[in-house]
């Protein structure tokens, strides 16, 4: 079986992905991941969101290992 990564989505992102938690084919880094994510969900290109890999916020291109957890975080709106 091909290697995967775990995705967690929040807020408006879930309207587009349909699921809060899902598996995605492994991508070697966050740049390639975003490219593949946008191919699958073109509507995401219009949203602003941050990425976290294993709970660490991504500020520049980051390597991804199989089974890593990637979180898609749109701007928050608590309170």
């Amino acid at each position: 079986m091909n290697e995967t990564i775990k995705i967690l989505a929040f807020g408006k992102i879930t309207d587009i992905t349909g699921a809060v938690s899902f598996l995605f084919p492994h991508c070697p880094n966050t740049d390639i991941f975003k490219e593949k994510l946008f191919q699958k969900y073109p509507e995401l290109k219009t949203l602003s969101f941050a990425l976290a890999v294993n709970k660490q916020m991504v500020t520049s291109k980051t390597e991804i290992q199989p089974n890593d957890e990637i979180v898609l975080l749109p701007p928050s709106s608590g309170g």
Binding site: F10, G11, K12, D15, P74, P75, S76, S77, G78, G79
Partner: peptide, 26 residues
């Protein structure tokens, strides 16, 4: 209060009377 609203990863989904929704923007 300001920092909670700005910095914590929490999202509010506004649900309308007719059950449609939109995502809250702070």
């Amino acid at each position: 209060v300001e920092r909670i609203k700005k910095e914590l990863p929490i999202w509010g989904k506004e649900i309308f009377v007719d059950n449609t929704h939109q995502w809250k923007v702070n």
